[in-house]
Structures are given as C-alpha cells and as structure tokens.
Design a protein around this nucleic acid. Structure first.
Length: 191
DNA sequence: GCAGTGATCATA
DNA sequence: ATGATCACTGCC
C-alpha cells in the first residue's frame, strides 16, 4: 500500500492556536534530527494583506552533508548551492526540470551543506505543487526562516504519534550509490 | 513508462 | 558554446 501523506489539516489546528517561530538553534542541528522534528510543524505563508496560510508539514527529506552522495553540496560550493553552506535557518530554493521550485531549509553549521527538502504540507502532497500553490520562487532563496520573510515555520503544538511516522528512502536519488537507500525521508501517514 | 522544460555546471 | 544532468509531475 502506498504511503500517503496526511493532509487533513482542519482537524489538526485550533482556530485560535498561537503560532510560535522556531528559534535559530532548532535548525542548527543535524539534518536528520531537524527533518524528523519538522513533521507536524507548520509552514506559514503570509501575505501583505495580513492573511496567512498555515500548512502542517507532512513530508521531509534530509540531505546531510558533502559526503552524502545525494546532496547538492557533494561537489562543493557553487553559486546555486552557496546558501546550503551558510548558517542554518535560511531557505534554500532551487529550480529543477525546467518547471519546478523546490523548498528546503538549511540546517547544521556553516560549512556543512545540509538541508531539508519540504516535500508536502497541508493540501499540497508533492514538492512542486507546494511551491506553486504558495507562490515560492527564487525570491525566497537565502531569506531567513522568520515571519518578516512572509515564509516561515511555526510550532503550533501539534504532536505526531510515532505510529503515524514512516521513514523511507529519498525520492529521485537513484544515482547516489549506497546513499539512495538511506531512510532519510520522513512521512506523516494517516492514522 | 515517459515527455516536457530550462537552469546549472563542467568542459573547451 | 555545447551537452549531460536533474532532490519533478501528470498523463499514457
């Protein structure tokens, strides 16, 4: 049976829940710890009007450093990957296949190219649709993950039971040798 | 299973 | 300048 990310957000969030930004230290940890911890946190997209969309994160993938042969940082720092080598808590957004923007959060410490790909949140169950629906492009690349960027991550107090969390290999990294089979993808499944 | 799409990077 | 590659998606 295929693994389906959980997308029924209405039952998860109280209307008056208080959204707290995560401290910088949250991101300054190893990529896998952060990838797991992001499940159940909320992606928040603000608009100038004051409206905001709050989408629980349901699927992430960790890319852990230059030695990870699936990681963009494996060839060293380039113009595209520079953000990954910088401090934690910034967005890394890149364009792929001529069509899609991918949203990642930089983690770990400066010099270690590590990040989480946010693959699904709220009603968006694939990474390309997530960025399209939220209007995320290269504009967000390098911005800090905080409310002032109008794209940030909040703790809404949602707890994810262990039995609803599944780990699998990462998607689309068959070229990565032994690293393609590492269980670095985290999915919040429906109960 | 695979076409479509264009930035990125290495090579020259 | 050129060509291979690509952390994808939707439709066959």
């Amino acid at each position: 049976m295929p693994i389906r990310p959980r997308t029924d957000t209405a039952e998860l969030l109280q209307a008056d829940v208080e959204l707290q930004p995560l401290p910088r230290e949250f991101y300054a940890r190893s990529a896998l710890v952060v990838a797991r911890a992001l499940i159940g946190k909320c992606l928040v997209r603000g608009h100038p009007s004051g409206d905001q969309r709050v989408w629980p994160i349901t699927e992430t993938e960790g890319y852990i450093g230059a030695h990870d042969l699936a990681c963009h940082g494996r060839f060293g720092e380039t113009p595209r990957t520079a953000v990954m080598f910088g401090p934690a808590g910034q967005w890394y957004v890149y364009f792929i296949y001529g069509m899609y923007w991918m949203l990642n959060v930089v983690t770990n410490t400066p010099g270690v190219p590590a990040a989480e790909l946010i693959r699904a949140a709220g009603p968006a169950n694939v990474p390309g649709k997530l960025t399209k629906q939220l209007g995320i492009t290269r504009v967000e690349n390098g911005l800090p993950v905080e409310p002032a960027s109008r794209l940030w991550i909040a703790d809404a107090g949602v707890r994810v039971p262990r039995r609803e969390l599944v780990r699998t290999p990462r998607i689309g990294v068959d070229y990565a040798g032994e690293w393609k089979d590492k269980l670095y993808r985290f999915v919040w499944t429906k109960a």
